[in-house]
Design a protein around this nucleic acid. Sequence first.
DNA 1: TCGTTATTCGAACGAACGTTCGACTCAGGA
DNA 2: TCCTGAGTCGAACGTTCGTTCGAATAACGA
Lengths: 224, 224
Amino acid sequence: MPRTATPDSQTASRKLEMILRHSARVFAEKGYEGASIRDISRASGVSLSGLYYYVESKQKLLYLIQIHTFNTILSQLRRNLESVSDPAARLRILVHNHLEYFLRHPMEMKVLAREDDVLAGEYRREVAEIKRRYYGTALEIFEELRRAGQARQLNPRIAVLSLFGMMNWIHTWHRPQVDPQAEALSDVMSQMFLHGVMNGHPVDSQKTSRAARSTLKVAARAAG
Amino acid sequence: MPRTATPDSQTASRKLEMILRHSARVFAEKGYEGASIRDISRASGVSLSGLYYYVESKQKLLYLIQIHTFNTILSQLRRNLESVSDPAARLRILVHNHLEYFLRHPMEMKVLAREDDVLAGEYRREVAEIKRRYYGTALEIFEELRRAGQARQLNPRIAVLSLFGMMNWIHTWHRPQVDPQAEALSDVMSQMFLHGVMNGHPVDSQKTSRAARSTLKVAARAAG
DNA sequence: TCGTTATTCGAACGAACGTTCGACTCAGGA
DNA sequence: TCCTGAGTCGAACGTTCGTTCGAATAACGA
């Protein structure tokens, strides 16, 4: 009982997206190595060999998930940062953007956080490159904070990687029914980070939080 | 060319320890599912079937690594906490104990951090139980901080899990040749957490840091 | 109506997987 | 001297792995 074939490029790319969604779920549940192509075939309803019509290998499947997730989260971040110049507010936006996406796409983010050193060759290089750009953006914001006199003389690398640690570790413990959602979570983590990093200069949490929130609402509407 | 057989129970358990060390390295490098028993056989110099004389399955190998690591880190923590009552100092000890062990046994800790949901059945239950006890200890310290008026009204679960996130994420980025060692790292992370969590009450970093350090030196000597 | 192109899949490939088995060695006690 | 038991391993078990191949189907332009 074959589905009606529609040689429509939009339908084809939609099916690829559907395969990627199911793949992300399976990878998140069993890990990349622990998941088999047959698991993905079963989960997506596409036959084993049918999968290879859309994606040339298991590695490419992981690559597509990772690169697409990073691209989306990074371009959303840049859009959200555009109109804000206050360093503390920019930091809040980064945290909120990350956590918002994290909780909206937990499977993809879990795959991003866990399967860090699986890819090889060109795939690996490309994912590493975009990750480096994302990290660089965070580093710049931290330097702005410092220039504005709102951050202590901390090793910026450690400060920023600690922040990412806080955020990315979430995939190991967050239960949507029990734990706070992105809004509250990013408020807490931004505050923890800003207080933890500043030195004597109290952060105006009212102002920066409001600025970040209004920008993000626009973004949320745009993203649907 | 068989090694000389020494029916000495100490030799046997030493060999098991050796196998566990090599297993941890292989699991850390390729992930649990990505690593094969043959990889471990090659790495440890024990034949494929020889491995099964010491450990009954691949799962048990992972279980033994995880339970031993948790037991060690938890009992060391309790020893280090015994003589200290100041909440901020106790928090510093927890962080230092965790990072010290982390950087001394990076392979084991990477396996602990990554292979969280691989185990099944009884093995899973036992590891979950000891992890819960470790987490509970951290939670108690946070509550002490709060009772002492040194912590804001934060969701304790989120605060503590964020701290573990900071610390455990290290396995994805720390390069021993480039990055600070346990001493400096735990100073920075303790400070970030304590400042991030407190409210108006400045933390006496001199005093608490000194207290923690002298206790930990004793422990370091004891651990060899 | 025919030929082309896009799409799908059952069946199979060789390789690698975790685990088992039986045979072997060797030291120490009887 | 023979026996026992701890230790070791090569060879093989049946299963699952990622990937490939060729045939089948359906829609569409000519």
